[in-house]
Design a protein around this nucleic acid. Structure first.
Length: 648
RNA sequence: GCCAAUGUAGCUCAGUGGUAGAGCAACGGUUUCGUAAACCGUCGGUCGUCGGUUCAAUCCCGACCAUUGGCUCCA
């Protein structure tokens, strides 16, 4: 479903926050919703849930044999899972919607009835539940499954609208006529109860709103989101390509225009980190198995890593001098999925004194993660990624200041990119998981979490605290931002690490003449180039601010007579590292302006005879039209200033 | 990974069991032009890949590859 894809938060568990190995997910499923929780359903959710029932009614009118499973309201609408021989496609939507309208027009009451378990099982066996009537030989098998999950003692209820009777805890709106505006949006597949051992069902998605206006507004936003899709704009602007056949799935190739974005971001990061006292390092893309055994990433994280390479040295059997590299002998090498172990080895490279701390090692490191094929998504979820990574080694005393400085850096970046809405999600440990899900250092956990909490509070940062979601080795902070059209992105993760440095035996010599293990802060405020640029493309709809725009200035002489004047302006700008180009072609001025606008060139400078004589340029800004004629020197210095200050 | 949809020129998209079509882009020419499309012409496709059915397949069937949507926000 388009909508679902757009609005569903991108899963972050194996992407940015996987600096650390995570233990396998807990075997226990999430708690069943209580009836109280269900009754807390908002008005809109009731509406949507009721709409799901009406959709089921309509589907049964068309295909009476349909078997229904679950039909809850979801973030942007509702769905109902149906088992049906006929493959429902969007072509069927008009017919289903027409039946739904009839049901709404009939204005049936949503009638609730509490029944005994025996009664419910009987009705399910007769095919009555999730049906329009009895269906001999076609028992409501998923409803029977659902019934079996209802704990003893919890009331079992039906809801009925017209002929349609469903096992349902509700709540619903009063009558089908209360449903406002709705629309079926997508069909997908889902396993019954999400378990791939169960049959696969067709999941029909729809959305509903109280009024037609609200529905239309939502559809408009969807349309806007589609227009801003980073894959679409990325192709239009020639920013990157994916080349699954040659490079491989999920491994973007940055084209020249996209590389401009990459390098401008790196420049911003390097300046910012330099000012904040970071030093830069560079590390290889590969490391021996021992590296990840020591870090603890193997075996937990092995599934998400590319399979190892086996490399033997020259002279050994299967050695590099023969054609048999990859033979059984020799060392196993892994493509790195994270940079931290390498940085730890740099920390370990020489004896460290407390006077050396904090040590802030920064690197735009290129990592490789073997994401499942079905998880890949444009630039947002890839297999090769460049992280705005750094590791800060510090003493406990220094921790709060260092952590605060990291937060300040985030806030600075938010300002640069005009992000007004953000939230930090502070994940702490759960006591039950100590020694299992979380490293068994109860005091250290509490102490570190208290420090983090205090810094968050002191700096007035917008955050929420979530218990029992920390990383194995320490509390973490996920950073969520909202793009200009209100979509949420998890852009980065901060982690506090009080365990891995010890695994690498990292120590510093303290003033009391003893060796101590440093704390480590993992941080990546700009996330990865891939995801961050994907986000920025949507945020700006490809209309990047001047400093970031791949095409900053294009100078268009009106006729050949202004060619030299125009060239002079381009050369002056280029001498100042401005991405300026001259365009003089057979096209009429209007055509060249159109193409410059289409290419999202930020400044379009038109020079004709009048401008040349006056030493001026006619300024046009992408998306904002003609800005008037102004002196050339003034325009040039303005452009330089806007770039230097990274104006929005 | 699993299920589904999709895959025709660089891009957007038509189309048919019988030699593949448009617009834009590109290229060549004419035009030298004042703020969102000047004109003429040319080039461009193994119709995702492989296999099957057929006298004949881009079209029908199958497998594979890739992309996209979804894979508990539970009666």
């Amino acid at each position: 479903m388009q909508a679902g894809a757009w609005y569903a938060p991108l899963r972050d568990d194996t992407f940015m926050s996987a600096d650390h190995p995570q233990p396998p997910p807990p075997a226990t499923l999430p708690e069943r919703k209580t009836l109280d929780q269900r009754n807390a359903m908002s008005e809109l959710e009731r509406l949507r849930h009721s709409c799901a029932h009406v959709m089921a009614t309509a589907i049964l009118r068309l295909w009476p044999e349909a078997q229904f499973a679950a039909g809850p309201p979801v973030e942007n609408g509702f769905y109902y899972d149906v088992d049906l021989g006929h493959r429902i496609t969007p072509d069927d939507f008009p017919a289903i919607e027409a039946e739904m309208k009839r049901e709404i027009k009939a204005n049936h009451v949503f009638e609730k009835r509490v029944v005994s378990r025996e009664q419910a099982v009987r009705d399910a066996q007769s095919g009555r539940l999730g049906g329009l009537g009895e269906r001999p030989g076609n028992p409501s098998r998923y409803k029977l499954g659902n019934l079996a999950e209802i704990p003893e003692g919890e009331p079992i209820s039906y809801y009925r609208n017209g002929d349609f009777l469903d096992l349902c805890a509700g709540p619903h709106v009063g009558r089908t006529g209360n449903l406002g505006a709705f629309k079926l949006t997508a069909v997908a597949s889902a396993y019954y109860k999400g378990d791939e051992a169960n049959p696969q069902l067709q999941r029909i998605y729809g959305t509903a709103f109280k009024t037609r206006t609200q529905l239309e507004e939502w559809l408009r936003m969807q349309e806007e989101a589609r227009k801003r899709d980073h894959r679409k704009i990325g192709a239009e602007m020639r920013l990157f390509i994916l080349d699954p056949d040659y490079t491989g799935p999920g491994m973007p190739l940055w084209l020249p225009k996209g590389t401009v974005l990459v390098e401008e971001l790196e420049k911003l990061a390097k300046e910012t980190e330099f000012a904040a006292g970071y030093v830069r390092v560079r590390t290889p893309h590969l490391a021996k198995e021992k590296m990840y055994v020591t870090s603890g990433h193997l075996p937990y994280y092995a599934e998400s890593m590319f399979p190892p390479m086996q490399v033997a040295e020259e002279g050994e059997p299967g050695g590099a001098d023969g054609a048999s590299r990859g033979a059984v002998q020799g060392d196993r090498y892994y493509l790195k999925a994270m940079n931290c172990p390498h940085h730890h080895r740099i920390f370990a490279a020489e004896p460290r004194s407390y006077r050396d701390l904090p040590l802030r090692l920064a690197e735009y490191g290129c990592c490789y993660r073997y994401e499942q094929s079905g998880e890949l998504f444009g630039l947002m979820r890839v297999r090769s990624l460049n992280m705005n990574d750094a590791h800060i080694y510090c003493t406990e005393d220094q921790f709060a200041d260092e952590f605060r400085a990291v937060n300040d850096m985030y806030l600075k970046y938010f300002k640069v990119f005009g992000l007004e809405k953000y939230q930090m999600r502070f994940s702490t440990h759960g006591k039950e998981g100590l020694g299992r899900k979380y490293v068994g250092e109860p005091e250290l956990w509490l102490k570190t979490e208290a420090m983090v909490r205090r810094v968050l509070q002191d700096s007035g940062i917008n955050y929420v605290e979530v218990a029992n979601e920390a990383a194995f080795y320490g509390p973490k902070i996920d950073v969520q931002v909202w793009s200009a059209i209100g979509r949420e992105f998890t852009i980065a993760t901060n982690q506090v690490d009080f365990a891995v440095p010890a695994r690498f035996g990292l120590v510093y010599h303290d003033r009391d003449n003893t060796d101590k293990t440093p704390l480590c802060i993992h941080r990546a405020p700009l996330g990865t180039h891939e995801r961050f640029i994907g986000f920025l493309i949507e945020h700006y709809a490809g209309n990047f601010p001047l400093w970031l725009a791949p095409d900053q200035v294009r100078v268009l002489p009106v006729t050949e007579a202004q060619l030299e004047y125009a060239r002079g302006i381009v050369e002056e700008l280029r001498a100042h590292q401005v991405r300026a180009e001259l365009e003089y072609s057979n096209d009429k001025l209007q055509g060249r302006i159109l193409r410059a606008e289409e290419a999202r060139v930020h400044h379009i400078l038109v020079v004709g005879q009048r401008e040349q004589e006056a030493g001026a340029v006619a300024v046009r800004i992408h998306g904002h039209g003609h800005q008037g004629v102004r002196p050339r020197a003034e325009v040039v210095s303005e452009i330089l200033a806007a770039i230097r200050e990274r104006r929005a």
